[in-house]
Nucleic acid binder design. Structure first.
Lengths: 145, 145
DNA sequence: TTAGACCCTATAGTGTACTTCAGGGTCAAG
DNA sequence: CTTGACCCTGAAGTACACTATAGGGTCTAA
């Protein structure tokens, strides 16, 4: 069972050792076992967990929210229904984010389609606002910035 | 052309007037025109823009990144190719986020499927880690926390 | 056995994104 | 004509998520 030092863990996921310790202090990572001399010794699992944290951070979850997500792994005290409900609630939150992201994506791809010119064409169309509401709104109040 | 006060704008999108002024200072919002007495007067467009900012924030873009996204609306100096490239780059970043989000979503829905018990069943399966890597990895080092 | 790379704790400092505060001016209603 | 809800600026303060610093111990290779 090859254990990893904090430096190895940090390097493997591309964060600093300070951040790993910080996550431990914040309760995102359990305190790992220690060597005789007090060095942290991590199971390889920790890498997965840290990558999960990284991904969740990238899509806008706070550390506290991530802690909640991670807490879903815990075995609930003899009640699965509760866990399932919490998981479904989180999935709903994720779906909302997916929706937001897709709307932003649509805005940008609309924008890029709108000027499908060849090299150095001068008559770039006047760009409309990145839409925030459904794209099929009638266009009162459209301007170029 | 009914213009909006900062208070009206703030209320409409659910943020504080201070935040609106802050976004102006940070360059996310252009300085609007002013009334005789120096009050800001916003075009209704501003609401769209602020909602766009909100959405982008929710999915983990920083204010600087959002500024970049918004800058894509600007008419580039006689070159559309450049703009298109920037937009496509941003779309790539968004796709990466979509990917991350879908992986997190998969982890959670896997988790909830895994315990599809009826009310108060006691034998909740030992939950596996929220996977971070592709789900079909051979399961060395699977544990329950 | 010592130099360099690593590890430890505790605490202070930083950047981002606000939020609050101090000290005012504006405006519509009563 | 004043009271209350709004607006203004500039500066200080806060929460979150690190990042750096101080002052030390460990480990391994020359």
């Amino acid at each position: 069972m090859n254990l990893l030092s904090i430096g190895q863990v940090a390097k493997a996921v591309g964060i600093s050792v300070e951040t790993v310790r910080f996550y431990e202090k914040q309760g995102l990572l359990l305190a790992p076992m220690r060597s005789e001399s007090g060095y942290r010794q991590y199971k390889p699992d920790t890498l997965k967990q840290l990558r999960f944290i990284q991904r969740a951070k990238k899509v806008g979850f706070t550390l506290n929210e991530i802690k909640e997500l991670l807490s879903l792994r815990k075995i609930p005290n003899s009640n699965c229904t509760n866990l399932k409900q919490r998981a479904l609630k989180k999935i709903g939150e994720i779906d909302a984010k997916l929706n937001d992201l897709n709307r932003i994506r649509d805005s940008l791809s609309q924008l890029s389609r709108r000027c499908n010119s060849e090299e150095n064409i001068v008559d770039c169309p006047i760009l409309e606002y990145l839409d925030d509401d459904k794209r099929n709104e009638k266009d009162e109040s459209r301007t170029h910035l």
